[in-house]
Nucleic acid binder design. Structure first.
Length: 272
DNA sequence: CGATTATGATTAA
DNA sequence: TAATCCTAATCGC
């Protein structure tokens, strides 16, 4: 389930469970044997997430760089570990925790300047404390590409994936085909603010929930799966029941509600 | 048991 | 845009 919230959660949990003590590293699958040997018996000193990119410092001079891609998983297994069943690229065993990495699009050791290069290509990450949204604001202002495409562009904003993209635009009432340059300052503030709010919820809970507990009528922790999202993978809008529409934008399908997300910005209705 | 699908990104064309 | 990579769960026959 890898969007930015997953990676930040992972960075924290890896550090909490493995940090400060030597780790036994191996590559049961064999495709990261040399790298695992470098890390083996070294101490995890620091983890860092930027968008969907994860870096782990074992004090070896190089950093472990992991990108889960679409299907990658980094999950805890029983301790002490058993022989892995599937393809495990990297296994990390600490004092009382086993972590197995499978299916990553990237798993490599990189020098610090390579980390700088990777992070240098990324936009601000809403989950980072040091995030500065101004670069993202400027990035949107200078292109006519649809907002649905720019929100997925990691060089504009780092960490948003296909689920959050669709849900954020719904929550903000913005049609995904709107030119990015047409997004107003108020709309940008809403997008950024909601991204921070919703991805923090995702990071804490380990799953994506964007619906409002008041609206659903039960706390987030007790929501049914089909009540957690407004539009993603749905046929009808969770808010108004309108039949949803799915288009390909930015190379990937995005679903929106024609009623809640009008193509043209609604003339602001004066309240009262 | 094979085909399909998935919250991603890079490279080639 | 399309092809490609990476894995495992699920679905249809």
């Amino acid at each position: 389930m890898p969007e930015g919230h997953t990676i930040h959660r992972l960075a924290r949990r890896l550090h909490e469970s493995l940090g400060g003590r030597p780790v036994v590293a191996s590559s049961p699958q064999g495709r990261f044997e040399a790298g695992a040997a470098v890390i083996d018996r070294c101490t995890l000193q620091r983890t860092e997430a930027w968008g969907k990119y994860l870096f782990c410092d074992f004090g070896t001079g190089e950093l472990l760089h992991v990108h889960l891609g679409l299907i990658g998983k980094f999950r805890t297994r029983e301790f002490p570990p058993e022989e892995p069943t599937g393809a495990v690229r990297l296994r990390l065993v600490g004092e009382d925790t086993t972590w197995d990495l499978s299916g990553p699009t990237r798993c490599e050791l990189v020098p610090p300047d390579e980390q700088d290069r990777i992070v240098g290509r990324l936009g601000p990450d809403p989950l980072r404390r040091d995030a500065d949204p101004s670069a993202a604001r400027a990035g949107l202002a200078r292109t006519d590409r649809p907002i649905g495409a720019t929100l997925l562009d990691q060089s504009i904003v780092a960490g948003i994936g296909n689920v959050y993209r669709a849900e954020l635009l719904f929550v903000c009432g913005i049609h995904p085909a709107r030119p990015s340059s047409s997004i107003t300052d108020d709309e940008f503030e809403a997008i950024w603010g909601e991204t921070v709010r919703l991805m923090r919820i995702g990071e804490r809970s380990g799953r994506i929930t964007t619906t409002d507990p008041e609206e659903i009528g039960r706390p987030r922790s007790r929501m049914r799966r089909e009540d957690r999202l407004y539009v993603y993978h749905r046929e009808h809008c969770r808010r108004c029941g309108t039949t949803l529409r799915t288009d390909r934008i930015g190379g990937r399908p995005i679903t929106h509600c024609p009623s809640c997300q009008p193509a043209r910005r609604r003339r602001s209705t004066r309240s009262r």
